[in-house]
Nucleic acid binder design. Sequence first.
DNA 1: TTAAACTTTCAAAACTTATTGAAAGTTTTT
DNA 2: AAAAACTTTCAATAAGTTTTGAAAGTTTAA
Lengths: 168, 168
Amino acid sequence: MELAEAKSKFIEAWGKLGSEWGINRTMAQVHALLLTSPVAMTTEEIMEALSISRGNANMTLRDLIGWGLIEKQHKAGERKEYFFAEKDTWTIARQVAQERKKRELDPILKVLNELSAVKGDEKDPEYKTFKTSITSINKLAGNVNKTLETMLKAEENWFWGSIFKIFK
Amino acid sequence: MELAEAKSKFIEAWGKLGSEWGINRTMAQVHALLLTSPVAMTTEEIMEALSISRGNANMTLRDLIGWGLIEKQHKAGERKEYFFAEKDTWTIARQVAQERKKRELDPILKVLNELSAVKGDEKDPEYKTFKTSITSINKLAGNVNKTLETMLKAEENWFWGSIFKIFK
DNA sequence: TTAAACTTTCAAAACTTATTGAAAGTTTTT
DNA sequence: AAAAACTTTCAATAAGTTTTGAAAGTTTAA
């Protein structure tokens, strides 16, 4: 397999994975393109490489910046904006985890906490089942949340630090 | 807040979370309904409770069985099938992790391994960047995979066993 | 064996999400 | 101050996904 083919396979696979995880396909593809590009690219070049429209390219690039996965670069004497991707895999994983925590885990935790507070008749099976399920999901979600917070904050933490080394 | 309202809030929130994570909304809602139900329910009752069609209910229930999140129950002297959800949160999390690993991680690992094998000119920056990115993503994905396998297989493992206790 | 009870399928329709591209906006250069 | 170079917006449209419901299939009981 030659490089160009390999690169487009990667872009395709990354796009598919993204869409399965609720990340827009184009966003994942642009990310893959920049991840495998040795140089920063312009909007024009990205549009060209992936056959996408200007509008789509622009919105996607802004979203990726919002996720902290790519950055703008200004070249001296040039008007155009160049984009390049953060290439450290661990940092990428952390950014994605952080963003999804903020967007999804935090809101559901809020709901679960509210629902945990609902009072009812301990003898009512409906109530008991509800209470038990909510409490146990809430506990797991809370633990995931705490763990993520620790991971995202301090890689230096002696305990997690040693676990991270396994992954890197 | 009274129980009925709380229950429907939970169903809604669980459905939303599901759709953000690439799990069909109805599927997550049916799951939430059964999770909070003290008794097994028939297709008819589920259709009624969530205002969904027979076809949709049927497909969703089959999918949930496929994910190992719910089971059929036959009541003596009855023709109807009853469905109930596995209620242990940790088991739910494990089932979901297992299913997604199979559907998503395994295929991407296959692609990454293929792409890792691509040969090229070490002096070509295009090649070098590609190689470096793929290798590093491959390594992370491989580690995640190994960890998941261990977690899914043996909760008794001394190391992970002690980590799990933090979550439960 | 036939009717009734129940489950499954699938093409069409509804709904949701992503993409386009032209127009408007902004910044820089002349 | 006007033109050129570039970026952003957004309504219309396309693409993708989910849902419906009627028809076909299956199982059990009489």
